[in-house]
Design a protein around this nucleic acid. Structure first.
Lengths: 192, 192, 192, 192
DNA sequence: AATGAATGAGATTTCATTCAT
DNA sequence: TATGAATGAAATCTCATTCAT
């Protein structure tokens, strides 16, 4: 009976949980299964996470912060132009979803819709995006009529929904096609 | 031993199921509760629906067909212009969601995300929308570069996600604002 | 909505019940199914039989009386010789089981073991068989040591068990082989 | 929240299951009752047995192997004579049934008739018995006409049925009477 | 920290039976 | 008699969580 180190146990549970949630959906996975697959006893699961939701929340948190970082990094790489920056975040999001397919689907997709979805991914990114759009509006580079708060949320909803649909079967489109389409529909592109 | 109510047991179950699913979420409702609230015995539930999912499916089906009808009706009212038609369906969808708030959230929102969402609402409407866009593209009224299949799906994802977010708290925006924003971001508006 | 005559409904239920019990076993059949298969409403079932057990009991009763008649007829055909008579009943039982395979299995076999089995088939026939054997014993034609009551019951148990086993798969033996074997082991043959 | 009893949960369940099945019959016992009577929670039942049938199967398996052992032991004690051996197994079976009355009735009797009955007890013992009989036939000590396979099965059916009848009310006969009668009707005794 | 047998609330589902029409 | 929607007791089974070791 090997006794894995703390770090070990925790990250194993996170990893196995991610895989199982991704392949079976949140509903069809129970804590006993996660523990067993991680080579740990169920008691160990509860020594690390207060309950099943906590594990899920942790996955969500990590994924969310990963996505946030990816967006920020993208913005930092094109500091001069607001529109360019906005479109770079589209690229970043698509690549992030592609690289962290399981985590993206588990954290933002499937059963965790509605509240969770907008509450986390959309809400978090909506404000900075809206601010960026305001600058473009001030600069007269996008339509003056656009309700920026709504437009930002609507765009993020689209990005999220489209990426989840894509990840269900990545052969549905190429990353490049997605970037192109999402960019074309991005509020930062609405010049008329 | 109370006997049949005037109303049809099936429609009572459908109605009560809709209310409960809307207020508590699919997970927090069970067949016993639905039956009891409908003033019926649990056995009656199973005499009409093979299980909870079947009732949910029926709600989804009815809502979906309601939405479809609403869109078709909107299109028929403006037969001359493809762009006008497309934008009329936006209006129709917003009004439908507003009028059938519970059904919309139960059938398309919350836990029934990912698969169900795109599988039903988006997938069903994507093809006709894409065809409409193709006409506009042929007429040179929208960008020739747009991947119409993807754009159609992306837009519908946006509409769905935004409406669900709105219905969570209708004070977040007015129907008019939503229509305006969704229309502005609609692929049929992408002229550049 | 045709209204079958009483006789009709009753015999249909009996017939369908027999078929269903035989093919699925008593446990796997419910009264609703029997009624539906008989083309009748469940209420009609209860208009004719007080409950499911009553239907089963009726099948058992009829089968039992059929078997009794077959045995008596066999005995009447060879009035002179007790041993011959006894062996004729073996023949009669095998032929009866063969001809009324379903009824035999439903009434005496499967789940209706122990009590029912000995309570009905064996018990009923044990006494007359024992009396016949007593005559043979008096005539000195079978062993004087044999406990006739027990021997009669034991033989009937054997006949019953063996016929049920045979009917599960009639290719296991021919009727002639069974008659030969059961006759050889019949107490009336124990001369030593 | 009472915790583990000294005794193994599994063996408690087996023991209590045996008692309840014997006194009420398989049908009239459910997993909840078994668990409660064993002083365990229902979850514990399902942690040890996949369902009620699994527990029943385990009882059957153990009883069957007990009976097998008893027969083999009996045979080993009289190595010289095939007929003696055969009759010793009769004795062994009667004593086994007497000593393990509950298990014998649960595993082989009552509702578990037909299939189970022949499938397990009879089928298993039929082959070795038939082989023993063949030796006797070769040695000319029993009738050359006997179909040994059938005779073996028929005898075992008789033994089984008679013992089950006896165990329903042990005052019906003494063990000695049963041994005597079953021996007299045993194929190994058919010399004519 | 780790273990894992045990817990038990609760959800699902079946089906014999009733009774108003 | 016949109907069949409705009943609801009862059985099965799951799984998040606890806790003594």
């Amino acid at each position: 009976m090997p006794r894995p180190k703390i770090e070990d146990a925790q990250s194993r549970l996170l990893q196995v949980g991610l895989e199982l949630f991704a392949s079976r959906g949140t509903e069809r996975v129970n804590s006993n299964l996660i523990a067993r697959r991680a080579g740990l006893a169920i008691g160990t699961f509860y020594a690390h996470f207060s309950d099943k939701q906590a594990l899920l929340r942790e996955i969500e948190l990590r994924t969310l912060s990963g996505l946030r970082e990816a967006r920020l990094k993208a913005i930092r790489q094109v500091p001069v132009n607001r529109r360019e920056q906005a479109l770079k975040t589209v690229e970043a999001a698509v690549h992030f979803a592609e690289r962290h397919s399981e985590a993206y689907r588990v954290a933002f997709g499937r059963e965790r819709a509605g509240a969770a979805r907008h509450g986390a991914v959309v809400s978090e990114s909506a404000r900075p995006l809206a601010e960026g759009l305001r600058q473009l509006q001030i600069e007269g580079r996008i339509s003056a009529n656009l309700n920026l708060e709504l437009a930002a949320r609507a765009y993020l909803s689209m990005e999220l929904g489209t990426l989840l649909w894509w990840l269900e079967d990545p052969s549905r489109a190429t990353a490049a096609e997605l970037i192109e389409t999402l960019s074309a529909l991005h509020p930062a592109s609405i010049t008329s």
